[in-house]
Design a protein around this nucleic acid. Structure first.
Lengths: 234, 234
DNA sequence: ATGGTATTATTGTCAGACAATCATACAATC
DNA sequence: GATTGTATGATTGTCTGACAATAATACCAT
C-alpha cells in the first residue's frame, strides 16, 4: 500500500542523464575526462545497462559526451555545429522565414562590427584585407565558388574580431543555413556584388576605429547582398 | 571475403534516426501522426528493438517525436525551450562572460526595436504602455520583485513586436540567464532606474514610427541598466 | 627502449522476458 | 442514447544474458 507520490515523472534514462549532466557540469575545467564503463555506471546508479546507454545517447545528442566504440565515453563540449543543427531543424520545421534569418544575421553582424572597431588589432585587420583581396581576385577570375568561400570567411572573421564568443557562436549558427541557401541560389541566379568594394570600405572604417561608420557600411553591404538570397527557399 | 566498403561509418541507431528524420521532415504538414510500434520499425529496418529505441531517444532529444509510455510515438515539432536549453548549456560550458551575454542582448534588442517601429500596431503599443505604467507603479510602491517582472515582460514584448520569431527566440534564450543574474544582483545591490522614464521614451519613438530614435533610446536605457548587473557572476 | 602480438575490457547489437502503462472494445448504468 | 466502468490486447519501459567488433593494455621479442 505504498503511496508513492511519484514526484519524478521522468523516465529512468532521463533521470540518469540529468545526474550525469550535473556531475559533468560541476566538473568542468577538468574536461577530456573518461567516464566509467557502462556496466560500472549501471551498477552505481542501480539500473540496467540499457538505461545507461539511452542516457548516454541523450548526452551525446547534447554534445556533452563522445563515445568511441570499444573505448570508454569521454566528457566533451558541445560544438557550434551542434547549435547550428538545432537552429536548422527549428527553421525548417517552424514558421521561421529566410527573412527572419537574415534580419537576425544583420543584427548580429552590425553589433559585431561595432565591437570589432574597438578591438581591432593589426593582425586582424591584415587578415581582413587579405580576405577582401582574395575575394575580389576570385570574382574577377569568375570563380564564384571560391568567391563565396572568401566572402563567408570575411564575415566570420569580423564576428570573431568582436571578441565576443557568444556573438561569434550565434553568427555561425545563423550563417550556416544562410550559406546553404546562398549556394542553391547561386546555381540558379546571376550573382551581383560590388567586387569587394564594400568589404574594403568596412575594413577602412575598422582601421579608423569608427564603430558607427563600420556599422553603416556593413548595413549597406548586407542590404545589397540580400538580393542574392531572393527566391531561395529554405 | 566480402569487401564491405562500409560507407556508413555511422552507428546503426544514428542511421535509423537519420532515415526516420528524413521521413518525418518530408511528411511535414501532416503532423501529429503516429509512428509504427518499435517492434514493427525494428522489423522493417532489419535491426533490433534496442537500436530503434536509441534512435527514438535521439529524435526525442531533437524534439522531433514525443513518446508516451504504453502508447505509440508521435511526430512532434521542436519547441523554443529546446533551443533555449542548448544555448544555456553552451553558455555555462564555454568561456562566455556576462558581458558577452549583455552585448548580444543589446544587439538583438536594438534590432528588435527597429523592426518593431515598423510593425507597431495599436494593440501592441497599448500593451507596452500598460507594462511601462505598471512598472513605474511597482517601483514607487517599492515592490522590486514585481518591478523586475514587468521590466522583463516589457523587453520581451518588444522582441515579440519585431515579428521575427527567431529574434524573439534568441532574445528569450539570452535574457533567461541575464534575468537570473539580475535577481542575484538585486538581493545585494541597490537598484537604480529612471522610474520607467526610458521605457516611455521607447514607446513614444515606436508610436512615432522612428526606428533610429527607438534604437537610440533602447541603447541609452540598456547602457544605463547595465550597471545593475555589475558584480553579478554567471 | 621499441615494435609487434596476445589478452582483456568495453562498446555495439541482438534476443527474450516481464511489469507498467495506454488504447480499444464491450458491458453496465442512468 | 450517452456515459461510465471493466476487460482485453497492444505498446512501451526496464531487465537480463549473450556474443561479435573494437579499443586499450600488458607482454614479449628484438
Amino acid at each position: 500500500m505504498s503511496i508513492d507520490y511519484r514526484l519524478d515523472r521522468k523516465s529512468l534514462p532521463e533521470a540518469v542523464a540529468e545526474k550525469l549532466e550535473t556531475m559533468i557540469l560541476s566538473d568542468r575545467g577538468r574536461l577530456t575526462q573518461r567516464l566509467p564503463s557502462e556496466q560500472a555506471m549501471a551498477a552505481s546508479f542501480g539500473v540496467s545497462r540499457s538505461v545507461v546507454r539511452e542516457a548516454l545517447v541523450l548526452l551525446r545528442a547534447r554534445g556533452l559526451v563522445s563515445q568511441k566504440s570499444g573505448a570508454c565515453s569521454y566528457i566533451s563540449s558541445p560544438t557550434p555545429e551542434n547549435l547550428a543543427q538545432a537552429i536548422r531543424r527549428m527553421v525548417t520545421l517552424s514558421d521561421i522565414t529566410p527573412q527572419d534569418l537574415f534580419e537576425v544575421r544583420v543584427a548580429l553582424e552590425t553589433a559585431a562590427v561595432r565591437l570589432a572597431a574597438e578591438n581591432a588589432d593589426a593582425a586582424g585587420l591584415a587578415r581582413l584585407e587579405r580576405l577582401a583581396e582574395a575575394m575580389a581576385e576570385a570574382e574577377t577570375a569568375g570563380d564564384r565558388e571560391r568567391r563565396t568561400e572568401y566572402d563567408i570567411e570575411f564575415h566570420g572573421a569580423i564576428a570573431a574580431m568582436s571578441g565576443n564568443l557568444l556573438l561569434k557562436l550565434f553568427f555561425d549558427s545563423v550563417a550556416a543555413p544562410l550559406r546553404e541557401m546562398l549556394k542553391r541560389a547561386l546555381e540558379a541566379n546571376e550573382f551581383e556584388d560590388g567586387g569587394g568594394y564594400y568589404h574594403r570600405q568596412v575594413v577602412e572604417a575598422l582601421r579608423a576605429g569608427e564603430p558607427e561608420r563600420a556599422e553603416e557600411e556593413i548595413r549597406l553591404h548586407l542590404a545589397r547582398s540580400m538580393r542574392n538570397y531572393e527566391g531561395a527557399a529554405l
